[in-house]
Write a protein that binds this DNA or RNA. Structure first.
Lengths: 336, 336
DNA sequence: AGCCTTTCTGCACGTTTGTGCAAACAGGTT
DNA sequence: AACCTGTTTGCACAAACGTGCAGAAAGGCT
């Protein structure tokens, strides 16, 4: 009858005693015949591996005004992340991504096919994922990340790997460049069976997770500055009135995307196919993304929106600010 | 723009920062411009009012052996509450009831009709309920508690009141004696419209929560000792081979209840009508209840069982003895 | 307004918890 | 057996936390 005491089972026991029976770690340690520090570590492990799940749920009827306003105006499930407005951009990203990670986890269930984009936001989110055991889940990369000169974007694969290991899922990379040089090359590649496999997976996505890029006059974000596009491309984007992008697919302020030729060379999923995904989670941190965010919302790209309080506030307030000098200032801070 | 800072909204904010963003209470206090102790209290309140929900979920495939054995043998969803075997009876009850309360809460949702029995176990459970906001929920008392001489059982109403306030539910008391002196009186009362209302509610229960009474030679439980039954009744129970009861309705070892005349005078729901309830949660603490528990399981009264480790062990072991020794051996292995 | 009752707040203190570090241990290799 | 390497454990200390208490603030009532 001697129960084999695995670390797992001890962690479970400890978690039950701590979270369900309100015992102190000390008491648990005595019962488990080990030291208190070990119990502390067991509990960390239990949380880390998803044995313990903590969620904060807003009773909807008494959600803060901001959330209600956004939910009503844009028809999205919204989570406003409270942050003090004195925090710097990095800290905000950190907090938003942490809360995003914890908000996403309960939405993931077995046999999900999760599409994940890349970028500084997603990278941050991936770093804060809490584990959850699922079966038959697949993580699929939404758009290519290929680009010769920048090294920092090795994390495209790193990001989806982290998602994979958090959910015990199979990961499918998308080994193509973010943008092809020639639309024709893309068209041909899209016929390749290796690529088709990924595209088919993308068609079967049940969840998509992405940030937004914002096309700002002065300081364009990652994609716009990272060497993916040359100045001709940038001029063209500007000429087409592009507001931002999701997974390297561009759109305008009003959500339209017709006639943006660069999209023909982009490896990301068309807005239409993205819109077919059941659950589309958009994570945004920092008010400088607001232009892109508005476009994305106008395009109906998101079903769920997670963003920081400051940006949320900007979003509901009048567009009057869009040419405010303070904007230029914020933008010039541009992290990562 | 001045956000009215209610206590609720502060608690929500604090909870998000603490549980979702891993901030320390100190940091939260600074952001909220209050003292750390207030934050500590806000967080307690947030937990207390169900704003924060913590659950420990066993991945089923790696549930402890005991749980698997019971689940397999009796076809019930089982939660074994880990307790050191050196604890005294009161402590065990405390822990089991605490964990039971936290296990039950997530099962409750809006518009549920919850039947609740009474007794020392249920009393303990009711004292540890964590709040959860629901709508249209009703708590209905399963069986009468009337009895002139004992005072302690004022808690029959106290118990369901606590359930009610935990879920913001309407409570329906059942103001009849636990046992009628004459079956005929009960029959007539059961026609009264005031009583019918309760009985109808009981028919519509979606969840029932109860302990078990056990008919032991040496230590009869509450109902058997509390002055509800006289010695004639007790003799009769013994003669009928009664093993125990649920909500003052009796049954034998094998789960049968035909021919137990006392049931005709009992105010509790018939076993048949109990079995019609979707979710039937049985809470058991202490090995001396095992006789009654076995009967209840044989009768198929429970869909969910919450019990302490010691009793769980007895349940699988002693059961092994009762049939074949080799069976017992097999049972103890019982992998997956 | 004045008084009383109730709730809320911050402080101070003791308790509980996280974590760097060094020793103990486990597993593999020569 | 001796050695190396990577993990686990308990200790000790610092950080984080809960709570009784006394004063402050907020209602209620005359």
């Amino acid at each position: 009858m001697a129960n084999k005491r695995t670390k797992q089972s001890d962690a479970l026991r400890a978690a039950q005693m701590y979270y369900l029976q309100d015992q102190t770690m000390d008491a648990i340690a005595r019962e488990l015949r080990t030291s208190r520090s070990t119990v502390s570590r067991l509990l960390s492990a239990a949380r880390e591996t998803g044995l313990v799940q903590i969620q904060v749920k807003t009773p909807a009827d008494r959600a803060p005004e901001l959330e209600r306003a956004i939910r009503k105006r844009y028809q999205v499930e919204v989570h406003v992340v409270p942050v003090s407005d004195t925090l710097d951009e990095m800290d905000v990203l950190d907090r938003v991504s942490m809360q995003a990670a914890r908000t996403i986890t309960p939405l993931v269930d077995s046999n999900a096919v999760i599409g994940v984009a890349w970028g500084s936001t997603l990278s941050a989110v991936s770093r804060h994922l809490t584990r959850k055991t699922t079966h038959g889940t697949t993580i699929v990369q939404l758009n290519g990340a290929g680009n010769t000169q920048t090294t920092g974007i090795t994390y495209a694969s790193e990001i989806i790997r982290r998602f994979g290991s958090a959910y015990g899922a199979k990961v499918e990379q998308f080994p193509v460049p973010a943008f092809f040089d020639h639309a024709e090359t893309k068209r041909l590649m899209w016929e390749e069976r290796s690529v088709r496999r990924i595209l088919d997976l993308q068609e079967r996505m049940t969840i998509a997770i992405f940030g937004v890029g914002s096309m700002n006059a002065d300081v364009p974000s990652h994609v716009y500055a990272g060497g993916y596009l040359d100045s001709t491309d940038l001029d063209e984007l500007e000429a087409s009135g592009v507001a931002g992008d999701v997974a390297t697919v561009f759109f305008r302020d009003d959500g339209s995307d017709t006639g943006i030729v660069l999209n023909d060379r982009s490896s990301g999923p068309s807005l239409d196919s993205l819109r077919r995904v059941r659950r589309r989670i958009c994570v945004v941190s920092g008010a400088k993304k607001i232009k892109g965010l508005r476009g994305a919302l106008a395009a109906g790209l998101a079903t769920d929106l997670i963003l920081d309080e400051g940006t949320a506030r900007e979003l509901v307030e009048a567009d009057a600010h869009s040419s405010d000098p303070i904007f230029g200032f914020l933008n010039s801070l541009d992290g990562l």
